[in-house]
């Protein structure tokens, strides 16, 4: 229990990750599915941001002429978060474009119905 208190942010982010993961896996509505993807990715950024922050230190931007590393937080997780955001934005854009085309053809966002119609079309 003690560990859960100290690692509060990490615990929350892993729970969020689980929510997003299950949403992406099980949700039938395609838009909600990809919202699940975004929850999952954001949870990972929360995890990284929480890991990178060191209590009482400032952002690693050189302003007051202090070059001592112990004055700043770790910049690498922030860099990873940025890269991750770029990746997740492009994946989201791609999937939304795909969902739009599916909607235009099948007239529904429900994955089960789309599969059903698609199987019927294929069976002809």
């Amino acid at each position: 229990m003690n560990h859960l208190g100290t690692n509060f942010y990490e615990a929350v982010s892993v729970i969020l990750f689980g929510i997003g993961f299950m949403n992406l896996l099980l949700q039938n509505n395609l838009i909600k599915k990809f919202i699940g993807l975004n929850i999952m990715d954001t949870a990972v950024y929360l995890f990284l941001a929480a890991k990178g922050y060191i209590w009482g230190r400032v952002a690693p931007i050189l302003t007051d002429g202090i070059v001592d590393a112990s004055y700043y937080v770790n910049p690498i997780p922030a860099g990873l978060v940025l890269t991750g955001i770029v990746v997740s934005v492009s994946v989201t854009a791609f999937s939304l474009a795909l969902v739009q085309r599916l909607y235009m053809h099948y007239g529904t966002l429900n994955m089960d119905e789309i599969m059903k119609i698609s199987r019927e079309e294929e069976g002809e």
Binding site: F21, L24, L30, D41, F47, L48, H105
Partner: peptide, 28 residues
């Protein structure tokens, strides 16, 4: 074709689950 869009959606969702797990693993 519509079939290929359905195939892509399936492929995309499963792949994203895989890369999400990989990403969490990398971070931890």
């Amino acid at each position: 074709t519509p079939q290929s869009m359905v195939g892509t959606t399936h492929y995309l969702v499963i792949s994203l689950l895989g890369s999400g797990l990989f990403l969490l693993g990398v971070c931890i």
